[in-house]
Design a binder for these strands. Sequence first.
DNA 1: AGCCATTGTGCAAGTTGTTGCAATTGCAAT
DNA 2: ATTGCAATTGCAACAACTTGCACAATGGCT
Lengths: 156, 156
Amino acid sequence: MATHPTIGESLRQEGYRLTPQRMMILAIIRDSSDHISAEEIHQKVRQQYPFVNISTVYRTLNLLKKLRLISETDLGEGYVRYELLERGRHHHLVCRRCGESFAFEHELLRPLQLRLLKEYGFTADVDHFAIFGLCQRCRPAEEMNDVRKEGQHGAA
Amino acid sequence: MATHPTIGESLRQEGYRLTPQRMMILAIIRDSSDHISAEEIHQKVRQQYPFVNISTVYRTLNLLKKLRLISETDLGEGYVRYELLERGRHHHLVCRRCGESFAFEHELLRPLQLRLLKEYGFTADVDHFAIFGLCQRCRPAEEMNDVRKEGQHGAA
DNA sequence: AGCCATTGTGCAAGTTGTTGCAATTGCAAT
DNA sequence: ATTGCAATTGCAACAACTTGCACAATGGCT
Ligand SMILES: [Mn+2]
Ligand SMILES: [Mn+2]
Ligand SMILES: [Zn+2]
Ligand SMILES: [Zn+2]
């Protein structure tokens, strides 16, 4: 129940208030084993305090994002999900056909990050990417689909 | 005035109709020298045909996206912009502080694309990325900002 | 030309997320 | 304890985009 000191306290140390709403939101993000959406957070906070407004949830998420305590990522569901950044840097591959998503190592993005810094002096925020495409299983199916369409010319 | 045959015809060859609305939308995207937003397209189509609905614009953009004729990208303005994919593959760096955006070569993403394919069998859609971070000019300013905050502890 | 199935459009309502504003809260100096 | 002030909240309105549905347009078949 006691809010993990590190995250709540880093809020205060930046000069922000650790309000009850923020404590509840933080606890829920911390206790979630996976990515969590704003709506899910809102539902869970409401179980403790039914009057929280969804805009408070969004504002808190934006604050935590700005302080780089959480990261957001769009896994193609029509809304964004959030995750504690201290949970370890990683990224996701999302199949545009089956919707499945797989994590991949941050290492794979490091060479790009370095080249952007060297060639453009640009410090890229490489926190939590989602890259869309076709997974191994779906590629053959998609190609078959393309071939079928080309076939429409003469056939059928 | 005559719609560029290649794009309009590739629509038809996929079995979709080339309606007047779609012709107008296509012509506007083609005649735009830069990224263009749905709202901008809607405004311009309305000059020719005041009854088009914004949802037709969005539906057409989604169709063109699905057929990989256009690509979309979020440059951090609060809405998405679209560009003809045949205009040449490139990506963007967007500074989260000053909002400035710079293009960068597709070449820089190719090694990542290849590694994702080799290591995960994942065929990444690397059409038109926008990577956020700090540009060369803004990084010193941002660091100064961080230092000032740390100073709050004892000072002030 | 007339009919039918399919595709596309307009409209209104819905979803996710943001924002202006007035009221509340927290904090510190009196 | 009271006051002053900035940070935060709830609420309602808004913005970008999507979707369900009824009607219109299209294209194929006869
Ligand atoms: Mn993740
Ligand atoms: Mn571009
Ligand atoms: Zn798949
Ligand atoms: Zn900048």
